[in-house]
Nucleic acid binder design. Structure first.
Length: 152
DNA sequence: GCCAACGTTGGC
DNA sequence: GCCAACGTTGGC
């Protein structure tokens, strides 16, 4: 049982979009470091924070359950997909995805500036300068600290 | 829209 | 294998 944080631009895919689905493939990740996590580390029963990036209020908006471990990302092989990678080979998959479902939508966003103000969270990759990882690990301590930031 | 930071590409 | 150029990310 491990914890993660996954970013999405809400203009592309938001927590509202996820709430409308039973299960959603978290696909389109095209970064090798994130790919390795999706392929090798993230598994059924793990949980992940849903993070909204590149938007008016960047921050954590809810929790997802991982319901299927890493498998080859079909969008990489689909010429009609915006995530199509012409160099992908079906026999040696380059990109991976996992399936997620919504566990909880927070009543309000935990904004990035709130996370930045928490000393126990300063080691999160999310808060490192220039960080660009869209899938990253969260320690149990960080996870609990963030949960405790929610009112109620 | 700006720009810093970073990953990827490709020439050599 | 180096490294400059380029494209992308993402906060502000």
């Amino acid at each position: 049982m491990a914890y993660w944080l996954m970013k999405s631009e809400p203009i592309e895919f938001s927590i509202d979009d996820l709430a409308a689905r039973d299960v959603e493939a978290w696909n389109g990740v095209r970064n090798y470091q994130a790919r390795n996590l999706l392929r090798d580390q993230i598994t059924i029963g793990d949980q992940a924070f849903f993070y909204h990036s590149s938007c008016p209020q960047p921050g954590i908006v809810g929790i997802m359950d991982i319901v299927r471990a890493g498998y080859p990302d079909p969008t990489a092989l689909d010429p009609s997909s915006p995530y199509f990678d012409p160099r992908s080979d079906p026999h040696t998959p380059r990109w991976y995805c996992v399936d997620v479902c919504l566990h909880q939508r927070f009543p309000q966003t935990i904004p990035l500036h709130t996370l930045k103000a928490c000393p126990p969270l300063q080691d999160m990759p999310l808060l490192r300068r220039g960080n660009r990882l869209s899938v990253m690990p969260v320690t149990p301590e960080q996870w609990q600290h963030i949960i405790n930031l929610m009112p109620g």
